[in-house]
């Protein structure tokens, strides 16, 4: 069995790829499938990665390309019903009394176009700089900033429209 050595630099990125994919897609199984596909591509093309360049943005670029393909294909393929889908449907975290209700975040995120969801998650969850987010999406920084603004404002409206009581409702 070919197992990757534990010190391989890609390994440290796997949890981040998984967290991002989970937030982007919602469904646990589909998200891990995306990560798996991304890693297979990454392992086989690692020799193409330039030493010293940003490994994280390289990996996220691969994932974005695969995700874009999957989104395109999904429109042509009948929907699949995941075996276990804790992601979007059932909130798994306890309700928070302070700040924003996490279950509402899930629901609101799914209402955003993917390109806005991506930048919100890359910057807000993965802590990427605007430059890194732009590189991993292959778009100019200005595009990242405008998507970020539109996406966050849309979320604010969605959550505000729901109103404070609804905001904390357990779905």
């Amino acid at each position: 069995m070919t197992r990757v050595p534990p010190e391989h630099p890609i390994i440290a990125q796997i949890p981040h790829l998984r967290r991002y994919a989970r937030a982007l897609i919602g469904d646990r199984v589909l998200a891990d499938d995306l990560v798996q596909d991304c890693l297979e591509r990454a392992w086989s093309r690692f020799h193409l990665w330039r030493e010293g360049s940003n490994l994280r943005t390289w990996l996220f670029t691969i994932m974005h390309n695969l995700h874009a393909n999957a989104v395109r294909n999904a429109t042509r393929r009948p929907a699949t019903v995941p075996v276990d889908a804790p992601g979007v449907i059932a909130p798994t975290r306890p309700a928070q009394e302070d700040g924003l209700e996490v279950a509402s975040i899930d629901a609101a995120l799914t209402q955003l176009p993917p390109d806005q969801r991506q930048v919100i998650l890359l910057v807000g969850l993965e802590g990427m700089s605007y430059q890194e987010a732009a590189a991993s999406l292959g778009v100019p920084i200005g595009t990242v900033m405008s998507r970020l603004h539109r996406g966050r404002e849309r979320l604010r409206q969605l959550l505000a429209a729901a109103g404070s009581p609804t905001l904390r409702r357990v779905k």
């Binding site: 937030a23 975290r93 928070q96 700040g99 924003l100 209700e101 996490v102 975040i105 899930d106 919100i120 998650l121 807000g124 969850l125 966050r152 979320l155 604010r156």
Partner: peptide, 8 residues
């Protein structure tokens, strides 16, 4: 929002 994403 950023904090909620982390919590979630």
């Amino acid at each position: 929002l950023n904090e909620a994403l982390h919590r979630r």
